[in-house]
């Protein structure tokens, strides 16, 4: 492996804030496994279904009317970039899950475009996760997952599913899109859980 003279790549910065193997970027790279869906807001809804008494849905208007929080967090992508101090606005998953009592332990997020990702419910509760519809004070751009995406900043960013349309609550875990193709089932960036077996 020969070093390319003068190529600095991306520099690791504040190591206390940057998980192992990650590089800080100032850009916001667009990561995508398929075409960008453009769902009209009048047909958009967010649904919690699965192991619940009855499914709960919010229209875009109803979702916008839910209490929003401003969130500033660092995000860590498995492709090795970390972006510090990203600012979002969205609805806490505590608010959404309170409306749908459940015995389930796992959630599978489902999205426009067919993407899915699995997260233990415990990781979505306790002020750790949101469904966000604004980034940097602006409506969330479709390229970055708008109208709304999941935000679970303590896990690798593929868990923060773009174009989210709801959660399916499940008694047992089921791998999502990348998890099925060999990425880690949980995805803790501080333990560098990138791939199955890490």
């Amino acid at each position: 492996m020969a070093v390319s003279r003068g190529f600095v790549g991306r520099r690791p910065a504040d190591s206390a804030r940057v998980p192992p193997g990650q590089y800080v970027t100032r850009d916001f790279p667009v990561l995508s496994a398929g075409p960008t869906p453009y769902t009209p807001l009048d047909t958009w809804d967010f649904t919690v279904r699965g192991l619940v008494n009855r499914p709960v849905s919010w229209s875009w208007q109803a979702f916008r009317a839910l209490p929003h929080e401003n969130i500033t967090v660092d995000i860590h992508c498995v492709t090795k970039w970390t972006k510090l101090d990203t600012t979002w606005s969205g609805v806490s998953l505590d608010t959404l899950l309170d409306a749908a009592p459940t015995q389930a332990s796992y959630a599978l997020a489902f999205c426009d475009g067919g993407y899915t990702t699995n997260v233990p419910l415990a990781d979505l509760r306790g002020g750790q996760a949101w469904v966000v519809d604004e980034y940097d004070g602006q409506p969330l751009d479709p390229e970055h997952g708008g109208p709304a995406r999941l935000l679970v900043p303590h896990l690798y960013f593929w868990k923060s599913a773009k174009w989210i349309r709801g959660l399916e609550l499940r008694p047992a875990d089921e791998p999502g899109f990348w998890e099925m193709f060999g990425y880690h089932n949980y995805g803790d960036p501080w333990k560098e859980q990138r791939y199955q077996g890490d």
């Binding site: 790279p29 990561l31 995508s32 496994a33 992508c77 498995v78 492709t79 593929w158 990348w178 990425y183």
Partner: peptide, 9 residues
């Protein structure tokens, strides 16, 4: 081909 994600699709 979507080459920007964790894998190439």
């Amino acid at each position: 081909v979507y080459a920007s994600g964790p894998g190439t699709v």
